[in-house]
Amino acid sequence: MSDLVRLLNVFCLLSLLAVGGGSAVLPEMQHETVAVHHWVTDDQFATIYSLGQMAPGPNMSMVALIGWQVAGVAGLLVVLVAFYLPSSFLVYGCSYIWDQFKDNPWRNAVQRGMAPITIGLMLAGVHAVGKTACINSDRPLDFNIISSIVALAVTGILFAKHINPVLLMLLGGGVGWFLLRGG
C-alpha cells in the first residue's frame, strides 16, 4: 500500500473522530503518525504542532505539513482533503437534519454527554505534545524545567490577561533561543 493511500486512510478516520474540534484527535494523530507509521518523530510532531499555532487560520491545518513530509506536495494535498472533507460532508448533510431535531431533548443530552469526553481528549492532547516539548526524557533536566516553566507561564498569562497567543509563542521562542541554546 503506498504512502498516499495510508495517509488518506489515517486522516479520513481522524477527520471523523475529531469530536469537539481538532485538538481532541491530537493523541490519536500522534500515535498513528509517530508510532504506527513512523512518518515523523515525536520531536517533529511537536514542532509541526507548534508551527500550526503560529500560522493564521484553523490550527489543525498543520496536518498538511505531515503529508508534505511524507510524500511532498501530493501528500500535502491528500492530507488536507482527507482531514477536512469527510467531516465537512457530514456537517453539510447534518445541518439539514439537525434543524428537524431542533426541539428534541436528546440533542441536548448528546451535547452535554460529549462535553467532558472532548475535554478529556484535549487534556490527553496536552499530554501528547507536552511529553515531547516539556517532560522529554531524552533531554537534560534543566531543558525540561525551562520548557515546563515557559508552558505554565503561558497558561498563567493567558488566564490573567487577554493577549494574542501568537505574541506569547514568539516570546517563548525568544526565551528558548536565549536559555536553551547550550542544552
Binding site: V126, V154, W177
Partner: peptide, 24 residues
C-alpha cells in the same frame, strides 16, 4: 532552541484553552 521554546509555549496555550473551555 527557539523552536523548542515555541513548542513549550504551544503546550501552555493548549492547556489554557482546555482549562478554559472545560471550566464547567
Amino acid at each position: 532552541a527557539a523552536l523548542a521554546g515555541v513548542a513549550a509555549a504551544a503546550v501552555g496555550l493548549l492547556l489554557q484553552v482546555t482549562l478554559k473551555i472545560g471550566a464547567k
